[in-house]
Design a protein around this nucleic acid. Structure first.
Lengths: 329, 329
DNA sequence: TTACCATATGTTAACGTTAACATCGGTTTT
DNA sequence: AAAACCGATGTTAACGTTAACATATGGTAA
């Protein structure tokens, strides 16, 4: 293992000069810096992060909490971890994926991929006094929060249906009881109101958050009456919904238009692909990790609390009721 | 921050005794150990892993390589990372997710989630001289390898079709050029042979590894002639294949039976769910991480090289051609 | 000229842990 | 009864880095 001592010897300077070249290069004369950098390259010097962390009194580790049952299902976790690790890597931090919060975890802070699945762990974490960052919304001065603006994004999704001439728009919720369910439902209602469409509770269904649940929803809604479009608050359900319709011989989008929510990949599994709003999970988790490092490394004190709008991704699952009239004329 | 010094003071012993209680408890008298443990609990002692790593001359970090384009798509990465992190956590290691191999990465070894997507990085890694572990197969004494036994597992999948009375069995390959394609194809041919079924190259199709590719394959095969079952070497394609059949008004499994491969979640997105063979990704990646730690922490020298058979997961996509005759009789 | 300042570099002591060796009773061996 | 040994504990010096202070050199102001 090559140390700054070896480099210093080779370059004919002292330890600390090498350390300065690594950490505060502009405090070293250009000529000296050149010599040191050459020596580092020749010897293949790699900074010992552990030694640095010891001095800085940091662990160099951020824990990412993922609830055990949730974590295996979804492409969500991949996106989330890629974002976190991207940010951590830039500052020589590494991560530890945990399923429970433990007093004796050696880490500088916790990042949560959600609140609802993790209430208990989240509480423990707060009482530990370490910084916490959350993909979600939570009122506590010590918690950095970034979340998708579910209300606005759902409103955007449903508005897209309205703009395409749909008036009878169903909505499928799920039974997880998570905050985003209420929020996306609220967005749905706002979009209806803006479009001058009366809310009809017979067009609201609540099912399990799964493909099977989505299929079930299609049967319930088809039994209840006339609608031309449906907004499903997760793509997982939307996939099942589309399949359910197709199994009944109905066409998407010719008979029924469909819009989903999430955009993590499932929207591309059906034919046609599903129009959805895409949560920027990677970007959010990266930003969360950055704000975590801001606290831990830079000693930032102010709280991050932000909502990000999801982007509409137009695919082939929505029929434009307006153009057709134009086509005829 | 509570250190062993604080604990030692509280317990009335020396530093090293506390260290021994942490690392080699049986070398400390029972009574003393009790006192120390009590002191640790009272003070909320957490071992400083960084300090330990410094002494042990380790980084405490394992890099997990994930190719950039591949990584966002799949539930694979979630499963893989969960396995790795489970093993690492048990020995106070943390992980760093990287997209390129870098001489100046501070880590003790690299774990690769695949070879074909990462040939270049893999080569760099070998020349670095650090231990490497691979989900896949590679002939090099320095590389620990665990892989799904693709031949045997594909054979098992196709044998299941044969056992269910199918004789005209198509196969859908993909154009990735990865090793597993040839292997799974070989398993297909073995199962045919064992079943006394002649190989028919008109029942072989090669398409893009996507839902769309699977749909395409269904059209090609339907155009070519009679078959009662199809083996798709990835579930992603199998999903599209099922959808393509259903779009043509065909029933799975009544008209065509389908078996996939992977078992990472996609098999549950269609109705009916797809019968598939499940790669134990979590278990394999965990074992890879364990063998990595065996090298790095315990100094193990012998090479791990193992093939693991995937488990058949029976769902509703295969029709039993035998029972029906029995039913009639 | 002397005193002062800025810039560049060096010396020393920490960070928290563990390995290697040292010590000290008490027991076994001869 | 002396020698050797063993189990439990302690002392010291490392691991590689950085902060804080110290020194040296050259330039500028009085």
């Amino acid at each position: 293992m090559v140390t700054i001592k070896d480099v210093a010897l080779r370059a004919g300077v002292s330890l600390i000069t090498v350390s300065r070249v690594v950490n505060t290069p502009d405090k070293v004369a250009k000529e000296t810096r050149g010599k040191v950098e050459a020596a580092m390259k020749e010897l293949g010097y790699v900074r010992n992060v552990a030694a640095g962390n010891l001095v800085y009194k940091r662990s160099g580790i951020i824990c990412v909490y993922a609830s055990r049952n949730f974590s295996r299902l979804d492409p969500f976790l991949s996106h989330f971890l890629l974002g976190v690790s991207e940010a951590l890597g830039e500052r020589s931090y590494s991560l530890s994926l945990v399923h429970e919060v433990n007093e004796s975890q050696f880490c500088d802070g916790y990042i949560f991929s959600g609140y609802n699945e993790a209430e208990e762990a989240f509480g423990q974490c707060l009482s530990l006094g370490k910084p916490v960052a959350l993909f979600g919304q939570y009122d506590d001065a010590g918690v950095d929060c970034i979340d998708t603006d579910n209300v606005l994004s759902a409103r955007k999704a449903v508005r897209y249906l309205v703009e395409n001439g749909h008036r009878r728009i169903a909505v499928v919720l799920n039974t997880t009881g998570a905050d985003y369910v209420k929020q996306r439902f609220e967005g749905y209602r706002m979009a209806l109101q803006e479009g001058g469409i009366e809310y009809d509770s017979s067009l609201v269904v609540e099912v399990d958050n799964s493909t099977e649940g989505g299929r079930e929803a299609s049967e319930v809604l088809l039994g209840r009456g006339r609608f031309t479009a449906c907004f499903l608050i997760t793509d997982t359900m939307a996939v099942g919904f589309v399949l359910g319709l197709q199994a009944k011989g109905l066409s998407v989008p010719d008979d029924i238009s469909v819009v989903g929510f999430d955009g993590l990949g499932h929207q591309n599994l059906t034919i046609p692909k599903i129009t959805t709003v895409v949560q920027p999970v990677y970007e959010i988790s990266k930003a969360l990790a950055e704000s975590m490092l801001g606290r831990v490394v830079d000693g930032r004190k102010d709280r991050v609390s932000k909502l990000v709008e999801a982007e509409l991704s137009v695919a082939g699952s929505v029929r434009n009721m307006n153009t057709e009239k134009e086509d005829i004329s």
